[in-house]
Design a protein around this nucleic acid. Structure first.
Lengths: 340, 340
DNA sequence: CAGGGCCATGTTAGCGCTATCATTCGTGTC
DNA sequence: GACACGAATGATAGCGCTAACATGGCCCTG
């Protein structure tokens, strides 16, 4: 007990501010966190002192002591996708206003990586978590249950949500856009289904496509799965090849807008008239769908709204409120353009 | 000192693991963080105990005690932009592999908000920071200098970087793509410059456009500034209106690919032949630029590479290494397609 | 003017982890 | 067999903050 004891980090702490303001450290803490608890004079003294010494609070210490962090985790599938970009932007907009910071991870559509990220986020003692999708490992569910952290799942609906869900009816939307093909006279349909990692949304959408066909008795000429990621042109080329290998296809449903746009572009390049020879519909409505003539008929997702609502819901839950309906179902829109 | 003292969070701690493994807490800490410091038998006992009780380390406490976090901050301008999406994805890929977590914020192109985010990130004691752009407030620079945290700036070059920069020559790239217009015979040029918040990259690009015109003696018919964000079609409509208000414009340079694509689409809709009547070039090469016929002649940014290199550079610096050249200049590419 | 209540501030003891010594024990050396 | 030495483990004291209780002064009531 003689040697040099541990030394501080050299940064300015609450105690330094307290010394300058000539009050106790806890008063500084109160003046900064809940100003209404100290007198106006004290508050001003503290604020001046903090500014003078350039105090930057240590939120790690604060969170440790109070067992309450102002950080939320967001597990995305990927960040280089414009649709998720809208969602995460909306999410961050709302959280930022409420004074939360965002820890972000990308699972690459792999449930195992999602689990690792969740573990990591929990060890950072996040106050809440947002997960894209409803496909999770058993281990992830167990950890989340044990931690008791508010969780919101995004982009889908769930029969048995972990905690809360904010999404839309992917199956119903797929069905609606397929019905559009059928209404305009298509009788031999093809579905192009994107395939990537453990993602299951495209299967849900495929089910909606099949619903529409079954309900109307229209023939499904074939279904093709396209491993992602792929460039728009490449997806389109594969799909067009597939269509040509079949007989008399007159309508194509794609589970995302990139495959749909690719198909459109390749058809045009090959002299196939869209929608007269082949009609095309997709799902998803970023600007690319509207820009390529004659414009893609597709589903507009409530992408921004998902992020916005999810953040609001999570904030409510983190504030301790409970919900009767932990599931929010948002609306999609059918956007009619030239391809169907 | 009689009443109920403060109680723990109820979660499982190092001490719980230590009790089960029948070793001291510090041994558990060592077994988990630096396994080579304990005997194989102990390590296994500890690992088994940790798994058995479902231990999730508290990184806040760890970071506080060691004054070293494994979290990095990333201040983007916006997250709903496909180009930044690539950069951030690359950044996170590399950092994740190195065991870092990412705290993300969006400045909305406002330097003041960037400063607030930096302050927030510093209070979370990030081990490093990435900032998009080189436009920062004086206050932000002061804080960063005081904190002594490794910082990497992205997407531009800087004469006097805060710490490190990874970017490319925006001015040179703009000049090159403008020269393409001139080479193919354009003699009356228009520049469309995007305008958003405190962002300065488009001004740098405009300077490159002027360089090319001055160097070759070609006339600049006019320059128009377009407040962002705007839909592709709307930008295009404004630019086309502007062009028509001038005489004999035969070449258009846009500081981003969205304005360029919009101009292309509107020209086609108006029966103006591209590139025969008017040639168009943009900057930025996401898929949208390649999909709309006849394809946009543009600059491909090293977007993924910026994120990748920035992360690697930051990791090196956080590990304590110094650099002779804290500035990394990456290459852009001129992509020739149909519009010029 | 005694007593109660409230507001502002202070004291003390952690939150869960790790830095920094301190100790123990086995091994090799002469 | 005494000693040096390194490997493995432990004891102690914080990191910077806040929860929980304690205190002191002021105002109001009757």
């Amino acid at each position: 007990m003689t040697g040099r004891r541990r030394q501080g980090t050299g940064r300015i702490t609450l105690d330094d501010v307290a010394r300058v303001a000539e009050v106790s450290p806890i008063t500084v803490s109160r003046a900064l966190r809940s100003p209404e608890k100290v007198s106006a004079a004290t508050r001003e003294r503290v604020e001046r002192a903090a500014a003078k010494v350039g105090y930057v609070p240590n939120r790690l210490a604060g969170a440790l002591a109070s067992n309450a962090s102002r950080v939320v985790g967001f597990v995305a599938a990927t960040l280089n996708n414009s649709i998720f970009g809208e969602t995460i932007q909306a999410f961050i907009d709302v959280l930022d206003d409420a004074g939360f910071q965002l820890l972000v991870g990308a699972s690459g559509y792999q449930a195992e990586r999602e689990e690792a990220l969740i573990r990591e986020f929990l060890s950072h003692r996040v106050a809440g978590l947002a997960l894209v999708g409803t496909t999770h490992t058993a281990g992830a569910r167990r950890m989340l249950a044990a931690a008791g952290v508010p969780v919101v799942e995004l982009w889908e609906l769930a029969d048995r949500p972990i905690d809360m869900v904010v999404g839309f009816d992917n199956r119903g939307a797929a069905r609606a856009v397929t019905e559009r093909l059928i209404e305009r006279g298509c009788r031999r349909l093809v579905a192009a289904v994107s395939l990537i990692g453990d993602e299951r949304r495209s299967e849900t959408r495929l089910a909606g496509f099949r619903d529409a066909a079954a309900e109307t008795g229209v023939a499904i000429a074939g279904e093709i799965r396209i491993e992602q990621p792929l460039l728009i042109n490449e997806s389109g080329a594969r799909i067009l090849d597939y269509i040509r290998s079949l007989d008399g296809v007159d309508g194509v449903f794609c589970t995302n807008e990139f495959m749909a746009t690719g198909t459109l572009v390749r058809c045009q390049a090959a002299g196939i008239r869209v929608p007269d020879d082949i009609a095309i519909v997709g799902m998803g409505d970023t600007q690319i769908a509207s820009v390529v003539p004659p414009g893609l008929t597709t589903i507009r997702f409530p992408d921004y709204e998902i992020g916005h609502t999810a953040a609001e819901t999570l904030i409510e839950r983190m504030a301790g409120r409970d919900f009767d309906t932990p599931s929010v179902r948002l609306d999609w829109n059918l956007v009619l353009r030239g391809t169907a």
